[in-house]
Design a protein around this nucleic acid. Structure first.
Length: 628
RNA sequence: GGGCUCGUGGCUCAGCAUGGAUAGAGCGAUUGGUUGCGGACCAAUAGGUCAAGGGUUCGAAUCCCUUCGGGCCCGCCA
């Protein structure tokens, strides 16, 4: 029995008190208490005090005497605190055994919130004209961890990456290659995404100011890209796919995978826009402006905002008009025009598909499905207005909140890091810019971190092989970058600093992984596999109890993270769990315990910790290294 | 100008959804930890008018309003 079940059983007991007394309060809380106030606390006495015209203390006393009779066996004592809280104390002599055993299973905290419902998570969606920077990494990591959390709570999750292979940024690359003399082969085997972003894209956009001719070419090219059969379109496909392939190498290094790549060019050719546009018109969600500055345009209005042009007076749809059919497709609101073919097999053996409008002849007749009953789109908060329009429209179509824009704040650079990149500033932090080539590149950070961890690990371990050191460096560097990207809340700006990103002490991923390695080492050295059938009621000192309590609360955290789409909750949990273990490790002997029975019990506890931490880290996509 | 958002020790952040008991961490500072499983650690001390003011409430860091300060967004660009 883990925490959620205990909370639920207490809730029911309190509820039965309320029912017997014809009281209708339902919004009372039953939650873990602060240290020093038992294990679990309930606030129902406060809520009843007004209705019953009695003090919270008197009410809580009554409820306590009621509960003491009927409460679950896991509860040792119920206490009415003078302040009015009702506090419950867990009977650890009973609790230890069930929780320690349960926590070692891979399915620990696999609670069912999703009931296998189909859900789509879209993230990454970086324009295929440049390399990934640290801001993109935040998006990718949030999206990946959200998808892992949702899988953990029994959603059927499909992960999508939207490839905008037909926008202006693509036209810029083509101008660079065709009209500015940039070679299609990068010098010195430079990675193609870096070359396109740093050299071709930056170099080309810099020329628009001087050369007005180029600017008009840009729009010609943009038009030709949309004509599938044109040479320009085929060239654009070749370039963007090469950039995409290079970007995916970075993404896969981060341990992230997808189910399907959706290409914007195909969305345009699929005629989905035309279908959704007529649907919008028939439901009066758009209107043709007859007068004013938007005369001749189809526009969409929303309260407190300016009207947004969907279709220009020349009949050409605007940018947001691509997002609407795509959102509708993700929700299965319009017929799926796509077929799916294999793009590649990813490192974890998972097949990555891509959309295609071609006929395909597969052996299995079942059409693949990448749409969902619910959709989560991870896009940064600068797009919140456009996403709000899309969200509102989807709500009009479905009548519910099945489309969710999961926004997050941007990553900026510290002034130190900015000056490392050649920009002196008096500001505390500064925004990155792909167009100016001013950003911290994802491959570079990973490499820096990898080297740093490699050296640290080598310093601290004798006789580890090259491959062991590299594997540790990979686990810890990827873990570090993931952890740092989700530790702050989504609505906090991350000010990235190259130097402090290399820190490995305190509240960091290495601290957490280190606690895992220490636990593993104890288990290895013991040379036995602990017996969970023994009586484990001898784990009673404060360090043991603290650790057991943290282990038991895992399912609450999973539930919290899933219900609030909050990856940070699991990151904090991993850290707190590690803190509880580190303190235990310092103060409690395992291998030299006072008796064989105690040694066995403590080994069970260490095993339980180790499995639970590894379980939680895997939800964050972070490895658990045995040594480091 | 309009909209959104953030403001908690020197610095970086939890806590706010669902108001309740002593506002928690990490970094930095100061100090301690040989007999014990890896010091990427542990333990202790100092450091807070929870931006300001008002309101609701028995009770506000948490809810509401106003103000101040920072950030983002507001094209027939994508």
């Amino acid at each position: 029995m883990a925490f959620l079940e205990i909370l639920e059983s207490i809730r029911q007991t309190v509820q039965s008190y309320l029912s017997e007394n014809n009281l209708s309060i339902t919004n009372f809380t039953v939650e873990p208490s602060k240290p020093g106030f038992g294990d679990i606390t309930c606030n129902v006495a406060f809520l009843l005090s007004k209705e019953l015209h009695k003090s919270p203390q008197d009410i809580s006393k009554e409820i306590v005497s009621f509960c003491s009779e009927k409460i679950s066996k896991e509860i040792k004592q119920v206490i009415a605190h003078p302040a009015g809280h009702i506090n419950f104390e867990i009977d650890y002599t009973r609790f230890n055994k069930s929780i320690l055993l349960e926590s070692t299973k891979p399915t620990y905290a696999d609670i069912d919130i999703g009931s296998s419902k189909k859900i789509v998570v879209e993230h990454t969606s970086v324009n295929p004209n440049k390399a990934l920077h640290i801001g993109h990494v935040r998006n990718i990591v949030i999206g990946d961890i959200i998808s892992r959390i949702l899988k953990k709570v029994n959603y059927n999750v499909k992960v999508l990456n939207y490839i905008d292979d037909s926008g202006l940024q693509v036209a810029d690359l083509i101008i660079g290659f065709k009209h500015c003399g940039f070679s299609q082969d990068p010098p010195n085997n430079e990675k193609f995404d870096h070359y396109c972003g740093d050299t071709v894209y930056v170099g080309t956009t810099a020329k628009y100011n001087d050369d007005k001719n180029l600017e008009s070419k840009r729009h010609e090219i943009l038009k030709s890209i949309e004509d599938v059969d044109s040479e320009v379109s085929k060239f654009a496909q070749k370039i963007t796919r090469n950039v995409l392939a290079a970007q995916l190498k970075t993404v896969w290094k981060l341990g992230v995978t997808y189910d399907c790549l959706n290409f914007e060019s195909q969305i345009i050719h699929s005629q989905m826009w035309e279908k959704i546009f007529s649907k919008l018109k028939s439901q009066d969600l758009v209107r043709l402006e007859k007068t004013g500055k938007n005369e001749g345009c189809w526009i969409i209005s929303s309260p407190n905002e300016d009207d947004k042009v969907l279709v220009r007076s020349n009949g050409v749809a605007t940018y947001i008009a691509k997002d609407i059919p795509y959102a509708a497709w993700k929700l299965g609101i319009i017929d799926d025009p796509f077929n799916y073919k294999i793009y590649s097999i990813q490192d974890n053996k998972q097949t990555l598909y891509e959309t295609t409008l071609d006929e395909i002849h597969e052996h299995d007749a079942d059409k693949l499905i990448f749409t969902g009953d619910k959709v989560i789109t991870v896009i940064d908060n600068r797009q919140i207005r456009l996403q709000k329009i899309v969200t509102d429209l989807m709500k009009r179509f479905t009548g519910n909140d099945s489309y969710v824009h999961l926004g997050y704040e941007s990553v900026t650079l510290s002034s130190n890091t900015a000056s490392n990149l050649g920009l002196e500033t008096s500001e505390k932090s500064v925004q990155m810019s792909g167009r100016k080539g001013f950003y911290v590149d994802a491959d570079l950070i990973l490499e820096n971190l990898h080297n740093k961890i490699y050296n640290e690990s080598k310093k601290r371990n004798d006789g580890l092989s090259e491959s062991e050191l590299n594997s540790i460096a990979k686990s810890v560097s990827v873990g570090t970058i993931r952890y740092e990207m989700i530790k702050p809340d989504l609505d906090k700006i991350i000010t990235f600093d190259l130097e402090t990103s290399l820190k490995i002490e305190g509240d960091t991923c290495s601290y957490i992984q280190y606690s895992y390695a220490r636990a593993t080492r104890i288990l290895e050295k013991s040379g036995i596999s602990p017996d969970f059938n023994d009586d484990l009621s001898n784990l009673i000192n404060q360090f043991e109890i603290n650790l057991i309590k943290k282990i038991a609360m895992y399912d609450i955290q999973i539930s919290d993270a899933a219900n609030n789409l909050s990856p940070k909750v699991i990151a904090r949990y991993c850290y707190e769990l590690s803190v509880a273990f580190s303190s235990f490790y310092e103060h409690v002997m395992v291998l030299n315990a006072e008796s064989e029975e105690l040694k066995n019990s403590r080994l069970c506890l260490v095993t339980s910790f180790q499995k639970t931490l590894s379980n939680a880290l895997s939800v964050l996509g972070i490895d658990s290294p045995d040594k480091m």
